[in-house]
């Protein structure tokens, strides 16, 4: 039995339109302009992943919300859970870029990191 999938690659801005066929022998991908596309398609079929980006609150009025992202990709179905969790995070000191706001966010093994240098906004 052959299963066919169509999808848009989100690895880079090129946005290749991928076709993937899953058979007993494995997954065959076409339409990708680079190997990362094939890997993306396979993952997308087996265990799709996404990065989360958003904000968390801080105690500083100069910067009421602070941008964060997952340091890597998390399972796609965890994204909403991470988004909900960010509601309860409150930063009480000035973080720098890349500092961990929440480690192992929602048990994904991936950290939630701050992506702006708060010290530049609120002074140190």
């Amino acid at each position: 039995m052959t299963e066919t999938f169509e999808m848009i690659c989100i690895v880079c801005p090129r946005g290749c339109r991928l076709k993937a066929e899953r058979t007993a022998d494995g997954i065959a991908v076409t339409g990708n302009k680079c190997p990362r596309g094939a890997k993306f398609a396979e993952e997308e079929i087996v265990a799709p992943k996404r990065s989360f980006t958003g904000t968390v609150r801080s105690v500083f009025p100069e910067m009421p919300v602070v941008p964060v992202r997952t340091a890597g990709e998390v399972p796609k179905d965890k994204v909403k859970e991470v988004a909900l969790l960010t509601r309860d995070v409150l930063l009480t000191r000035a973080y720098g870029v890349g500092e961990v706001a929440v480690d192992n966010v929602c048990g994904t093994g991936v950290d939630l990191i701050v992506t702006a240098d708060m010290r530049k906004v609120i002074g140190s």
């Binding site: 904000t55 968390v56 609150r57 009421p64 919300v65 960010t86 509601r87 309860d88």
Partner: peptide, 8 residues
């Protein structure tokens, strides 16, 4: 409202 579901 504020983001993050509510009050500040």
């Amino acid at each position: 409202r504020y983001t993050k579901g509510g009050d500040r």
